[in-house]
Amino acid sequence: MQDDVLWLALAFMLMFEGLFPLLLPARWREVFLELTRLPDHRIRLFGFISVAGGLLLYWISSN
């Protein structure tokens, strides 16, 4: 059962990640270029927030 949930979560993540470049490819490219101009510490902060948010959601949903 747990493996099914993991694959389902991965499938939803891929669908969500693909929506922006599918629907607005030019804007997605602009946003991506802006992200490449950010300093490393800002990118790390966004990564930390994303990981912490995912862990929080996992913790909430597992209780």
Rank of each mutant, 00 (worst) to 15 (best):
L8W: 08
M1N: 11
V51W: 09
R27D: 06
L24A: 10
W28S: 03
F20N: 06
L23R: 11
V51C: 09
F16N: 00
L24P: 00
M15A: 12
Y58G: 09
R37D: 13
W7R: 10
P25H: 00
R42N: 03
G53S: 09
Y58W: 13
E30I: 03
L55E: 05
L35H: 09
V5T: 05
T36G: 12
E30D: 13
A11F: 11
L24Y: 08
M13E: 12
N63Y: 07
P39E: 10
S62I: 08
I49P: 01
P39R: 09
L38Y: 02
S62R: 12
L10A: 15
L24R: 09
A52D: 02
F12V: 09
R37H: 15
A11S: 10
L22S: 06
P39F: 01
G18R: 04
L56K: 03
L57M: 15
Q2V: 12
A52L: 12
W7P: 02
L33H: 07
F20T: 07
N63S: 12
L19H: 13
E30V: 08
I49A: 14
R29K: 13
R27M: 12
V51G: 03
L45W: 13
L6F: 05
M13C: 13
S50W: 09
L45I: 05
W59Y: 09
M13T: 15
V31I: 10
L24G: 01
E30P: 01
F46D: 07
L22E: 02
E17R: 10
A52W: 01
A9K: 07
G47Q: 14
G18I: 03
F12L: 13
L57R: 01
L55P: 05
H41V: 14
Y58R: 00
F12C: 12
P39T: 03
E17V: 15
L38G: 01
D40V: 14
M15K: 06
A26G: 11
V5M: 11
A9G: 07
G54D: 03
A11L: 10
A9N: 04
L57S: 07
E17P: 00
P21K: 02
L57I: 05
F46L: 15
A52N: 02
G47I: 01
E34P: 04
R27C: 05
R44K: 11
R44I: 05
R44F: 08
D3K: 07
W28G: 02
V51Y: 08
E30H: 08
V51K: 03
F20K: 02
L55Y: 12
L55D: 01
V31A: 12
E34M: 11
L14H: 04
W59V: 10
H41Y: 14
A52T: 00
W28T: 05
S62H: 11
